[in-house]
Design a protein around this nucleic acid. Structure first.
Length: 597
RNA sequence: GGCCCCGUGGUGUAGCGGUCUAACAUGCCACCCUGUCACGGUGGAGAUCACGGGUUCGAAUCCCGUCGGGGUCGCCA
């Protein structure tokens, strides 16, 4: 090694010992006589002092040092003189009196500060990611991610799970996201697909008798990115045989609880995790991944307003729609302009419009409310009793603004659910010390796809229907429930899973309901159906998004922060400039001809 | 594909129709400095104000378009 100690090992116990450290020049303080250099390694800083009276040549050389030069310094550990200790530094009690310096490498002036935690254009950070990760903030996240993955491996290893690697080059599946395709050189005109998840593979491992499998698996989906979505991401993939929902959920929950205790002792979290059904979640929060760090629930006021003379409400309810509302705490005094912004927001989420009603803060509770305190264009159609009922339904108090959306139920839920999430964050209602885990259960099995005019699986087509609702598949597929469950944290879906189908006849039936022809079923899923015919055990599992989880654990604002080499919004790798054109030779070999466009 | 926000020395910002021959901080370069730790002091270099067009007597500033970045809707089994 080019060093005898890492910076955290240096302390007062080593006084008078000769040590060698190596690292980067974090900062220099050149006093003309004395030169102070902070040497940074992976774990911290240590101050090195160059004194011309100790070694004039060495002091002279130190004058050439600049930020990010790579150095090897030997010297004597020394207690700092009285009054010059630095409590901000782990090594602040001591310093190294240098008697030799070797410049291992020089450095250009970095394009942004490495020794300061300042905001830098993300584009630039990504282009120079290798410099960015010298900064403690980025490095700490990489370390945290390592700890999370190590924790997961230890946890599942203790429970006798087997880590199995599954292939990256696989077969395209018709369901789900767009695939990344890899052309085959050997087979002209044929393509591999990168896995969107190792779903079928892990089910086959169950058929293969592994019983308990997990993997830290790379997954690929060629869809547009978001702040919490990358084209390439990492899942903790888990599958178990001879289990029920309860088994998978409790093993997952126990993992989270232990992980939270170990890594985030300062945060509170519910134990056991609460559970709500999909329909409760949609009804109360307008989302299947509700952020339970704050309440602000949707109130169904349809029956209250159905018989008023207010046209929008009345007509909506009469034609089978719903009128729902949420209360924005303390927003009663919103200006016309602010209300217009809110409406715009709601319209962006699919609502036709947004009706508001403010309850002015002239009394402390609903008992004292009078119609004079109710400001709304709908006020003249409502009586005091109706207003109070609306307030109770939404949890509104004087001083709050109640906003209504009237439309078909899914539109209302989506618009108000998104509005709830956005306004909850804007109004800082979310308790930042809370990790609000919640299980969402009882998902419907199928969802109607109006574009393709057919049913598709809400979770994925391998999810088992509730056993006693299998007959519904023939009569009323929409009502069939599934054995799927999602784990949600602070409004993010961090994982989802299900008990799978393990019988060929049932799997075939699901594909039939989804309007696949027999030929398509055999071509696409024949391997799976055949596997199920050889004594496939009942099985189920879950997949957790590692990136999203680390993002939430670290408090990062987007997923790129927790990925060492992420892609930007346009799925471009700014460091390597990928994707890039292929040469004519490469394309020829792959039997690919580009279309002129 | 739609909508919203952003683009000014290396970096981060200010300026939002004339005072801009573009300001401030930091970084960079030179010199001075033996107890600093975001060291200090003096001096210096460094910007076709993303790009193209338009409005105007006059544009970093207003308008349109393009490009780049971010957020979001659709999309993401």
């Amino acid at each position: 090694m080019l060093r005898t100690h890492d910076s955290p090992e240096l302390n007062a116990c080593l006084v008078d010992r000769k040590v060698t450290v190596a690292g980067w020049v974090d900062r220099r303080r050149d006093h003309g006589g004395l030169i102070f250099i902070d040497v940074r390694d992976r774990a911290g800083l240590v101050q090195v002092v160059f004194n011309p009276e100790i070694n004039p040549d060495c002091h002279k050389l130190a004058g050439d040092l600049r930020c990010e030069f790579v150095v090897q310094v030997s010297g004597t550990v020394s207690l700092r003189p009285q009054g010059t200790q630095n409590a901000k530094l782990a090594t602040g009690e001591i310093e190294i009196i240098a008697d030799s310096l070797k410049i291992l490498n020089t450095s250009e002036t970095p394009p942004f500060y490495i020794n300061e935690d300042s905001e830098v254009d993300e584009n630039l950070r990504l282009k120079y990611r290798y410099l960015d990760m010298r900064r403690p903030r980025v490095r700490d996240i990489i370390m945290l991610r390592h700890q999370v993955v190590r924790f997961i491996r230890n946890y599942f290893d203790e429970l006798s799970f087997v880590e199995v690697e599954t292939p990256i080059l696989g077969k395209s599946t018709p369901e789900g996201a767009r695939d990344y395709l890899v052309p085959s050189r050997v087979h002209s005109g044929k393509f591999y697909a990168l896995p969107q998840s190792p779903q079928q593979m892990k089910q086959l491992l169950m058929v293969g008798g592994l019983e308990k499998y997990y993997q830290i698996a790379k997954c690929f989906r060629d869809e547009d990115t978001r702040a919490d979505r990358q084209p390439e991401f990492t899942q903790l993939d888990v599958e178990m045989s001879f289990v029920t929902e309860e088994d998978v959920m409790s093993i997952t929950e126990e993992m989270f609880i232990r992980m939270m205790r170990q890594m985030h002792p300062g945060k509170r979290f519910p134990s056991p995790f609460p559970r709500i059904t999909y329909s409760e979640a949609m009804e109360r929060y307008g989302s299947d991944k509700p952020d339970l760090r704050f309440d602000m629930h949707l109130g169904d006021v349809s029956h209250i307003v159905a018989h008023t003379e207010f046209g929008v409400f009345k007509n909506t309810v009469e034609s089978g729609g719903k009128v729902k509302a949420i209360a924005l705490p303390g927003c009663a005094a919103y200006s016309r302009q602010e209300l217009a912004k809110l409406t715009e927001l709601a319209q962006g989420y699919g609502a036709k419009g947004l009706l508001s009603m403010s309850l002015t803060r002239e009394c402390s509770c609903l008992d004292g409310l009078t119609m004079e305190m109710v400001k709304s264009v709908a006020a003249k159609y409502l009586n005091l009793e109706q207003v109070k009922q609306i307030a109770i339904k939404t949890g509104a108090l004087p001083g709050d603004l109640i906003v209504f959306v009237a439309d078909k139920e899914p539109v209302v839920a989506n618009a108000l659910g998104k509005l709830r999430q956005e306004m909850g964050l804007r109004l800082k209602l979310a308790d930042s010390d809370l990790f609000a885990f919640v299980w969402v259960t009882d998902f419907p099995l199928l969802e109607w796809d109006k574009d393709l005019d057919r049913w598709h699986a809400m979770h994925h087509p391998f999810t088992s229907p509730l056993e006693n609702e299998i007959p519904l598949l023939d009569i009323e597929p929409a009502r069939a429930g599934s054995r799927a469950y999602d784990i949600v944290l602070n409004g993010y879906e961090v994982g989802g899973g299900s008990i799978r189908i393990h019988q060929a006849w049932l799997q075939r039936k699901i594909f039939q309901v989804m309007k696949y022809t027999e030929a398509e079923i055999d071509e696409r899923f024949g391997h799976l159906l055949e596997a199920f015919s050889f004594g496939a055990p009942p099985h189920g599992g879950i997949a957790l998004g590692i990136d999203r989880l680390v993002m939430l654990l670290s408090g990062a604002s987007n997923i790129r922060e927790v990925i060492p080499f992420p892609k930007n919004q346009n799925a471009v790798d700014m460091l390597f400039n990928a994707p890039a054109p292929a040469t004519r030779e490469q394309l020829n070999e792959l039997h690919i001809q580009l279309r002129d466009e």
